[in-house]
């Protein structure tokens, strides 16, 4: 039993990572209805930018996080301004934005490799944090930090979208962009804000996750993008809290599965779940509406 509880706990740790990434991804999707695959690239670049400030320049943890958040926010809103907004204005199908987004992901991934090199980079030296014991479960400080940070952030965003005017406006705009336009909501600005916040979050997350894992790698954006997509589909589209919950579910399922199945199949299992969800529960576990088949 204690083995299982350790697996579940590991799942919660992994899940909080997925949830963190999915939060920004879902925030952006909620506002703009774009599957912003380039989010993975923003994640990568901001992690390395944070690394440069924190480790290379030795300016400390706070400066590192601030840099990562700033770089990510600027990139996110930049991509929206240069790519998605003109497409939206030109009534181009969301497909095109999705495919374009892949292009941006590829560009950012390879730029990172050129600037920071294509070998994995050690972010937190030593990598061995103190191990704590909570009942039958073993854990580390960074793990607990991530879980707490994720839960607090998810709750904050939930409150933001439920009770704060700006949040409610963004949600309304996401579910009916035309109507929002008609009633004179500043849609463009709201979407920009969503990209800034969503990307800033992923910037912070990238460094937090990097510190937990210990290593960052130019190629990590693809997996990040894939997991964010899976988490959002599991949780439910157009709902930030649901996407975060989806991330937790994904993490737990992946980790409980490797109790019985070899860990190399984690990715395949995740996509198996993705496809099953699309087929049988397209609105997600916690979502309100989904793709009409």
């Amino acid at each position: 039993m204690s083995v299982l509880s350790q697996f579940v706990f590991n799942g919660i740790v992994a899940g909080s990572v997925y949830a963190l990434i999915a939060l920004g991804f879902a925030l952006i999707f909620t506002a703009s209805r774009v599957f912003h695959f380039a989010h993975g690239g923003v994640y990568t670049v901001s992690a390395f930018a944070g690394y440069t400030v924190m480790v290379t320049l030795g300016l400390g943890l706070a400066a590192g996080f601030a840099t990562a958040a700033l770089v990510a926010a600027l990139m996110g809103v930049g991509i929206n301004m240069v790519l998605y907004e003109p497409m939206k204005a030109g009534n181009v199908s969301p497909f095109v934005a999705m495919i374009s987004s892949f292009g941006v992901l590829i560009i950012l991934t390879n730029l990172t490799a050129i600037v920071w090199g294509s070998n994995p980079t050690v972010l937190s030296p030593g990598g061995s944090a103190t191990i704590y014991r909570l009942g039958p479960i073993y854990t580390t400080g960074p793990q607990l930090q991530i879980i707490v940070f994720t839960v607090v952030l998810a709750l904050l965003l939930w409150v933001f979208f439920r009770f704060v005017r700006l949040g409610i406006a963004i949600r309304a705009m996401g579910s009916d962009a035309e109507l929002a336009e008609v009633v004179g909501m500043p849609s463009r600005r709201l979407r920009h804000i969503s990209f800034i916040v969503g990307s800033g979050l992923v910037g912070i997350s990238s460094l937090l996750i990097g510190l937990n894992v210990g290593i960052i790698d130019f190629n990590m954006g693809f997996d990040i993008m894939l997991m964010a997509t899976v988490a959002m589909i599991i949780g439910g589209l157009g709902n930030v809290g649901a996407a975060a919950a989806g991330g937790f579910v994904l993490g737990v399922v992946q980790n409980v599965a490797i109790w019985k199945i070899e860990s190399k199949w984690q990715l395949a299992i995740s996509f198996g779940i993705l496809i099953l969800m699309l087929l049988f529960r397209p609105s997600g576990l916690f979502g309100e509406r989904g793709p009409a088949a």
Binding site: L226, W265, F271, L278
Partner: peptide, 25 residues
Amino acid sequence: LRLRNEYFLIATMGFQSIIYSLFMN
């Protein structure tokens, strides 16, 4: 093929990743 639009794209992306994972593992 039962899925429309973006969801078809995402499903094929999922299968692409599964196939790759099979080759890899």
